[in-house]
Design a protein around this nucleic acid. Structure first.
Lengths: 153, 153
DNA sequence: GGTTGTTTGTTGATGTGTCATCATAAGTCG
DNA sequence: CGACTTATGATGACACATCAACAAACAACC
């Protein structure tokens, strides 16, 4: 016999799901309209643009955004077609693939970032007090640690 | 010139994104393995099974899960093919479509719910203190209210 | 050195979500 | 009534994510 969720638990859980969905939708729509980038594009361009030479190995890129290799490969193919990134061979490891951000990719992320950050502020950060931030930092850390343990089993 | 996110703000924001993605992945995988239902199936079966006659108009179903009509229509087609729901004509409005949960659908949600709720508890609720719940309830309510205003513009 | 197992990246098939478009039916207002 | 607008649902095209399978290269080991 399961313990069902009481009213507040249920409300918090549903709010968590709904909040994320709505936030994602708003941010994606704005980012796309503003710069032609999807959130997935943006997520990949961030670590690429932060890398000193603008080159990251595919394996490491996958790790830094938490994607599976297959998803990354498919998405890189589409971004390559749009001229945002280029693929190069990996000198150290003949299996590897290096991903290079192109000048167009740099322009895109440079143009998109300020507005996107402002959107995140306006829709999320600005509505949180310092106490809220502390609480969320603590809660999210705890929950993710529990999830990580869960996945190990 | 945008105000960038400081370290804690950035950490909280990234944790929020990552937490949701990981939670969703774990819950979906478990639900699917356990009962053959996706989270989307589950989301639709809940309001259907809670309706007194097991019948809900498509428009209202879309509103109660927050989906677009197109997405609902596509998903209903797939669920109909699997025998989880059936479509019927709407007596009041000739445009309308009524969605009925089938006996198979009822069996599926009935079998899935206890385990799924337990999974939500184990991965989310159980790691929150009463104070956390209060804080999250407040924060999520505030954020969603702000988002709703945003969307009206 | 050759067998075995692992890592890396790609590909094709399938399920799903979004968008634009459409047909039909209600509602609105002259 | 009749023209116009809105609401509802379905559909096809496309973008995307996941899964299984694969090929190539590396690593480990006897």
């Amino acid at each position: 016999m399961p313990r069902w969720l009481d009213e507040r638990e249920s409300r918090v859980w549903r709010a968590h799901l709904a909040l994320h969905t709505e936030l994602q939708a708003v941010l994606e729509r704005r980012l796309l309209a503003d710069s032609g980038l999807s959130l997935a594009d943006y997520a990949l361009l961030v670590p690429l643009s932060e890398s000193p030479d603008g080159v990251v190995r595919a394996r490491d890129l996958a790790a830094s955004v938490g994607w599976e290799r297959s998803r990354l490969s498919h998405h890189l193919t589409r971004m390559q077609r749009r001229g945002l990134i280029a693929r190069e061979t990996c000198p150290d490891d003949a299996r590897g693939a290096m991903v290079r951000i192109t000048p167009d990719g740099i322009s895109a992320i440079t143009a998109a970032a300020p507005t996107h950050v402002a959107d995140i502020r306006r829709t999320f950060i600005d509505h949180l007090t310092p106490a809220d931030l502390t609480a969320l930092d603590d809660i999210y850390t705890r929950l993710r640690a529990a999830l990580a343990e869960e996945s190990e089993l």
